[in-house]
Write a protein that binds this DNA or RNA. Structure first.
Lengths: 173, 173
DNA sequence: TCGTTTTTGTTTAACCTTCAAGAATGCCAG
DNA sequence: CTGGCATTCTTGAAGGTTAAACAAAAACGA
């Protein structure tokens, strides 16, 4: 069962534990991230009938040239695996909000295309969603904190990008 | 404070869209949070054979008086629903890392208790996990940014606590 | 006390995510 | 052109999560 062929052992010399302050920061992060994700998922599931990440996919499509994006591009843009995207698009297709189209120049390729119904759902629920985000985040932070949050999260995200540092982890297959 | 049972329709007067700066911050947040969760889930799944949140449950138990906590307390502490916890503990019990015990004073109650095997798994994989967190977050941020992140996330978390503002959403049943 | 309401925890089914595997096409070196 | 490798996307199964419904015990109120 388990596992772990010694995988990620700490660098010899003993693990550098988190200090009390760091632990406190980390706990706050985990709690807020958990609560926030839950909150937004629930809001969108209730109002729009889909989880937050699916909504994000529709948004990305809506912002794209012909409301369409290749599967791989969409997956990378949304930071999820191709497999996950494949299942997600299948579901969104069943709901009528997205349709697939073959790519003419590459017979392996597929476009995910936002349908008119999809655009409608988006238009209809965008205000509620923006509102939820405002209430939970922006309305509670000073402009400096907002800016700071942006910088911090950008740094963290960059560090985890497949192309990022000597990373080898999220190949996002 | 709020509250809006009227689901989340925008306050009359038109929705207050996010400014470009706000959108940018929000996108960074979503990307980093997605990547980070994925990264930690993968690391722990690979090394310790469980997802990040399950690991967090073991940690909470390990920090508790007799390595035990009532289900509801554990759920609140981990910010998840009782249902989710129920499933999670069932799985952890099957793995032998947690066992359930009846509460003597309340016949409805159950304790989740960390077993010796659970403690071992924790001891064994804590260094690798701390390391992953350091690499992804703390090693990349200045002390000021760390402090700032703590404050910001604490504010966000507070706003979403069941007991928080006039909230009515996450009853975390 | 008796009946109602709350709290606690579980369960079922539907849905979502992950992992590993695989089919199809494209690409490239020889 | 051909054989091998890479890329693109899908699939199926296993496991995790959610929502709603439920049973049992406790707490409450008249």
């Amino acid at each position: 069962m388990n596992t772990a062929p010694a995988a990620s052992s700490a660098p010899v010399g003993g693990p550098r534990w988190l200090t009390d302050e760091e632990q406190c920061v980390w706990r706050s992060y985990i709690e807020a991230a958990t609560l926030l994700e839950d909150h937004l998922d629930r809001q969108l599931q209730r109002d729009a009938g889909m989880p937050h990440i699916y909504y994000g996919l529709l948004v990305k499509l809506a912002e794209s040239p012909h409301r369409r994006l290749r599967m791989t591009e969409l997956a990378m843009s949304a930071k999820i695996t191709r497999s996950r995207l494949s299942h997600a698009i299948a579901r969104l297709e069943k709901s009528g909000w997205v349709r697939r189209e073959d790519c003419p120049s590459d017979k392996r390729g597929q476009f995910a295309v936002l349908t008119d119904e999809g655009q409608e759902v988006l238009d209809q629920h965008a205000p509620g969603h923006v509102n939820a985000v405002r209430q939970a985040v922006f309305d509670r932070l000073t402009p400096e904190q907002q800016k700071s949050l942006g910088e911090i999260m950008r740094i963290v995200a960059e560090g985890l990008q497949p192309s990022g540092a000597g990373a080898d982890l999220p190949w996002l297959r």
